[in-house]
């Protein structure tokens, strides 16, 4: 049963592509403890409505949940949400939603999702266990589970793709506990179908997934940039821009300000793109 679930997830990962559309509203579900009455919960409504990405609000008070419509042109700032819930007099236990960022590896080999914005947020990816103990009435059976998800995420480390993970974040930032993201679904964010032009830059020193994250986090929030991919094995950064004639000098400067040496930067021709 578990094998099937992970193969299904793998299939989903391979087949699904997601495009980022600015202005689109996504939903995040907040699991809030202490919600005992509507009169007291009004303070939470006030605090959430002041958050910059707020679009809509729906309380499921008997389930201790608040569903918030969130504009994806604003970063989903978990710390700000946590602070708002705290100031309203409640405790945030978890946030279920969709998070966009790049995969990186920690010092101990653990995997993270580095959110594009806000830059200081890094979510620890909660991996399924290698082996799962399943209790039966008579004996304990140990069933090993394959790890297609981990392998897939390891693959994304080098490719520098933007990924979109839907899951639940738990853990409290104030207590310096890592914010754990348990993954429900994962998809690679594909380049937009319509764009002004595509810039390709060959760089030196792009050596690891953290370098990739820095590049993506720097360029993605820029108004003209629709999409970016950075591959540290190929030493290549690809930028999809809104304008047809982007300022290449400015893009080069920005890359070099990050500490990478730009060997070449050019606009990819349409024919070249079709060929690829």
């Amino acid at each position: 049963m578990i094998n099937r679930r992970y193969y299904a997830l793998l299939a989903f990962v391979m087949l699904t592509t997601v495009s980022m559309v600015h202005g689109h509203v996504q939903q995040v579900t907040l699991r809030v403890d202490g919600l005992a009455c509507p009169f007291c919960a009004f303070g939470l409504e006030k605090k959430i409505k002041k958050l910059p990405g707020y679009d809509s609000l729906h309380f499921l008070i008997n389930e201790g949940k608040v569903i918030v419509g969130w504009r994806d042109d604003q970063p989903l700032d978990l710390k700000e949400i946590d602070k708002a819930v705290d100031k309203a007099g409640f405790t945030l236990r978890g946030v279920t939603g969709t998070f966009i960022g790049t995969i990186s590896r920690g010092n101990k080999g653990e995997l993270y999702l580095d959110l594009i914005e806000p830059v200081e947020q890094r979510l620890h990816l909660d991996m399924p266990k290698d082996k799962r103990r399943i209790k039966t009435k008579k004996t304990d059976q140990i069933q090993s589970t394959p790890q297609p998800l981990r392998e897939r995420l390891e693959g994304l480390l080098t490719q520098g793709n933007l990924v979109e993970i839907t899951g639940k974040v738990e853990g409290h930032s104030k207590n310096k506990v890592l914010l754990n993201l348990s993954i429900n679904s994962l998809a690679i964010v594909s380049p937009p179908e319509e764009f002004g032009c595509k810039v390709i830059s060959r760089v030196e020193n792009l050596v690891c997934s953290r370098c990739v994250t820095r590049v993506v986090r720097t360029f993605m929030p820029l108004e003209d940039v629709l999409h970016i991919q950075a591959d540290h094995l190929e030493d290549e950064i690809q930028i999809w821009t809104q304008s047809e004639k982007p300022n290449l000098m400015r893009l080069r400067d920005r890359i070099e300000l990050l500490g990478f040496k730009v060997e070449q930067i050019r606009v990819q021709k349409e024919k070249e793109d079709q060929k690829k």
Partner: peptide
């Protein structure tokens, strides 16, 4: 709020409320 009518309870209002 939901405190007793004839005495005080532990309720505080949210920050800025």
């Amino acid at each position: 709020a939901h405190e007793p009518v004839f005495s005080m309870g532990p309720e505080t209002i949210w920050q800025g409320g």
